[in-house]
Design a protein around this nucleic acid. Structure first.
Length: 471
DNA sequence: GTTGAGCGTT
């Protein structure tokens, strides 16, 4: 008899874990629940009918399915009320091994209402709900209407699960034959975390493939992209669905296929070179001076686009030019690290030809790309956008300051680069640079032996990688 | 009956 599973999460912002049901009576043993969620005393779920929270019947240490069966919903743990925090802490303590502890979420990962733009006039709330329920539990949908009841072509959706939100934000949506955008509403700007999903993986060897990296890092959380620059440069980028997981790995050394790699923050674009080296298709970015936006523009490479495409019922990838996890030459040019201390791009970009194929035939934004503002990596709004109609509203690159609004010190950046041999060795080499091959790693390892907290995270980022990986 | 950048009665 095959074992069935239900999805259980610690709370609404946590990733569900599949727990096995008892084959004989389809119940969930309390002990099974507590094995994963120590301290949990029950389960609850949101009733799809009326959106109310419902409790699960507990009898004889068994949790019984609702009347309609477990039904593919996500169930949430119930903890004794006056000791929730204690139990949560206990739960975290129990998860001693590294990979488990990475999975726990921080409180900043809350769901928020998301705006859905570009809805077909005919799309109603039921259709919207049905579409988004393919991604996860939907708490609310709205289609905004005028006084006559006619749709205004946009609406809102809210999910119960933060990862669902990330997933939905990271891709395009085809609803009732229209490509729609899902973004964090302007009204929620600044209320969501802006932490990069991408990490820099240094000290890679040439035989570490994308698959190796993905296979290794996926144990910490869903990996949405792995990018290995070509020609070989001894580093790569790994992008996680969950920025918290990405951040939690920063500062650590990991051994992959016997290779000791170092994970650190893939720093945002530096301010000093935002007007340089922009390709044809994206040049409107350079005039986008939204002051408070975070310049984590890491998603406009075609790998990423493809990785996100094809999810859900409508997220198909209409761009057939490249496949997931591939890193053909020329694409991903926005990953090419610039040198903020030199006049030009010391690395050479390899061209922008692969970059998002932005013909901008849709001036509502380039829906070939997952939109970054939506992911909370960039804030939207673009109040300072001076670009013309070709502006890419999905990808307001080139925005001014770094995400943490830290002042840049080019000398420090240069020093850091120099440690890698990224400065002296790179300038004047055009496109044939080879990246950090013979770095003096010892000092940095000394400094980074402790996993960084947020403060350290910023320090490491400032010291080491505060230059532009995004363009 | 048409339209297609935007941002929500609370």
């Amino acid at each position: 008899m095959s074992v069935e599973y239900i999805q259980v999460a610690e709370d609404y912002s946590d990733e569900p874990i599949e727990l096995p049901l008892e084959p004989d009576d389809n119940t969930l043993l309390l002990s099974t629940l507590q094995g994963q969620f120590p301290g949990a005393t029950g389960l609850k779920y949101r009733n799809p009918e009326n959106k109310a929270i419902r409790g699960i019947r507990l009898n004889d240490l068994k949790l019984h399915a609702p009347g309609c069966g477990w039904d593919g919903l996500v169930y949430y743990c119930v903890f004794p009320k006056d000791s929730v925090s204690e139990n949560k802490r206990k739960s975290d303590d129990v998860m001693e091994n590294v990979s488990k502890s990475k999975v726990s979420k921080c409180q900043t990962n809350k769901c928020t209402d998301l705006i859905v733009l570009g809805l077909a006039w005919k799309t109603n709330e039921q259709a919207l709900r049905e579409y988004f329920e393919t991604f996860g539990e939907v708490l609310m949908v709205q289609v905004k209407k005028d006084a006559k009841g006619q749709s205004k072509g946009f609406g809102f959706v809210r999910f119960s699960n933060y990862e669902t939100q990330l997933r939905v934000l990271g891709q395009r949506h085809h609803i009732d034959s229209r490509w729609c955008e899902v973004k964090v509403p302007n009204s929620k700007e600044g209320q969501i975390q802006q932490v990069p999903c991408k990490v820099f993986v240094g000290r890679c060897t040439e035989d570490l493939t994308q698959e190796d990296l993905k296979e290794y890092f996926c144990k910490f959380g869903e990996v949405t992209d792995v990018f290995i620059p070509r020609p070989f440069r001894a580093f790569s980028f790994v992008t996680f669905l969950d920025p918290e997981i990405a951040q939690s790995l920063c500062g650590e050394d990991h051994i992959i296929k016997g290779v000791s790699v170092h994970v650190s923050n893939a720093a945002p674009k530096a301010d000093g070179n935002r007007n340089q080296n922009y390709g044809n298709s994206m040049n409107s970015r350079s005039q986008n001076y939204a002051g408070n936006s975070a310049p984590y523009n890491n998603f406009s490479d075609s790998n990423y686009r493809n990785e996100f495409g094809g999810r859900g019922s409508g997220g198909g990838n209409s761009n057939g030019s490249s496949s997931n996890m591939s890193s053909g030459g020329g694409q991903n040019s926005n990953f090419m690290p610039n040198n903020p201390n030199s006049g030009g791009n010391a690395w050479g970009s390899g061209g922008n030809n692969g970059n998002n194929s932005s013909s901008n035939n849709n001036n509502r934004g380039n829906l070939d790309m997952p939109n970054l503002q939506a992911l909370g990596i960039n804030s939207g709004g673009n109040p300072g956008n001076q670009s013309g109609s070709g502006g890419n509203m999905n990808n307001p690159l080139g925005v001014g300051l770094n995400a943490l609004n830290l002042p840049m010190n080019p000398a420090i950046v240069a020093a850091a680069l120099n440690q890698w041999g990224l400065l002296n060795g790179m300038q004047g080499q055009g496109n044939n640079d080879q990246g950090p091959n013979n770095q003096p790693w010892n000092q940095q390892q000394q400094r980074n032996q402790n996993a960084p907290d947020k403060t350290n995270f910023m320090r490491v980022k400032r010291m080491k990688y505060d230059y532009d990986w995004s363009d």
